[in-house]
Amino acid sequence: MDAVNQEIIRILLSDGRASFHQIGREIKMSASAVKRRVDQMVARGEIAGFSAVIDPAALGWETEAYIELYYKGNVRKPELERNLSAIPQVVGVWSVSGDADALVHVMAGSMSELEDTIELIRANPKMDRTRSSIVLSRVFQRPRA
Rank of each mutant, 00 (worst) to 15 (best):
D2K: 10
D2V: 04
D2Y: 02
V4L: 03
N5R: 14
Q6C: 03
Q6H: 12
Q6N: 13
I9W: 01
R10W: 01
R10Q: 10
I11R: 10
L13N: 03
S14N: 12
S14Q: 14
D15Y: 06
D15W: 08
G16A: 03
R17H: 11
A18R: 05
S19W: 01
S19D: 05
F20G: 02
F20D: 13
Q22L: 07
Q22Y: 02
Q22N: 09
G24R: 02
E26S: 15
K28W: 04
K28M: 04
K28G: 09
M29W: 02
S30L: 03
S30N: 06
A31T: 02
S32A: 05
A33P: 01
A33M: 07
K35C: 00
R36C: 00
R37I: 02
V38P: 00
Q40M: 05
A43L: 01
R44H: 11
I47S: 01
A48M: 09
A48F: 00
A52L: 09
A52I: 05
V53F: 01
D55V: 06
D55H: 11
D55M: 04
A57R: 14
L59P: 01
L59Y: 02
W61D: 14
W61L: 15
E62P: 01
Y66I: 10
L69W: 04
Y70W: 09
Y71N: 07
K72W: 14
N74F: 07
V75C: 06
R76M: 08
R76L: 10
P78G: 06
P78R: 06
E79N: 04
E79S: 08
E79Q: 14
L80T: 06
E81P: 00
N83S: 11
N83P: 00
I87M: 08
P88S: 11
V90C: 08
V90E: 07
V91N: 10
V93I: 15
V93D: 03
W94R: 13
W94A: 14
V96D: 11
D99H: 05
A100G: 03
A102I: 03
L103S: 13
V104K: 12
M107W: 14
S110I: 03
S110K: 03
M111Y: 11
M111E: 14
L114E: 06
L114N: 08
E115I: 12
I118K: 15
E119A: 15
E119V: 07
L120K: 15
I121C: 08
R122Y: 06
R122H: 04
A123N: 12
N124D: 15
P125V: 14
K126Y: 08
M127G: 13
D128R: 12
D128Q: 10
R129W: 05
T130P: 09
T130S: 13
T130L: 04
R131I: 11
S132A: 14
I134P: 04
I134K: 12
L136K: 12
R138V: 13
V139K: 09
V139D: 08
Q141P: 01
Q141V: 11
R142S: 13
R144T: 12
R144I: 09
R144W: 11
R144Q: 15
A145Y: 05
